[in-house]
Amino acid sequence: MTEADQREGERFRKLALPLLDEVYTFARYLTRDAGEAEDATQETYLRALRYFSGFSGESIKPWLFTILRNVLRSRDPRRFEPLPQGEGGEAGNVEPLWGETEADPEVQMARADDARVVRELIGRLPSVYREAIVLKEFNDLSYRQIAEVTGVPIGTVMSRLARAREELQTAWFALEKKGQKE
């Protein structure tokens, strides 16, 4: 191993490792599965190291997310498929996030602002809305960076984000109303 390799490794360690929690957060919301998220995160870092010499140096965060997204897509090519009716698809197929279902008494009893409930609601969003809101709110990416990562125009990022927020607000409202009835 040459000294240059070691320095490159050191540079990678300093730039990329502090972002591990963020990369994992994105992976977890996208996969909704702890094991899969962990695997995908590890693979992302291995790939990132391999291509690190080609990294543009502007900002490593969107670059890591782009790689993670490619890792996820290569594992499930349908993950980021466009929605049935263009961008205006339904949040129809509800997969419970992390096995928390409505039948789960813990969820029913939880107050509406419980983090678990919020995670559940985000987990029910269609994946293209979900990734937009996660990248914006949890990973603090700008519109331009989200556009880079997801490979769509900024206008599309904005409409997906607006849609994600609308659906979350609606779901939230329904939950609170239900809570009041009980």
């Binding site: 994992y24 977890r28 939230w172």
Partner: peptide
């Protein structure tokens, strides 16, 4: 909504 999403427990920690 942004306020709600800034609550602790939503940004996750790697295992």
């Amino acid at each position: 909504l942004k306020q709600k999403l800034s609550a602790p427990g939503l940004r996750l920690r790697a295992p």
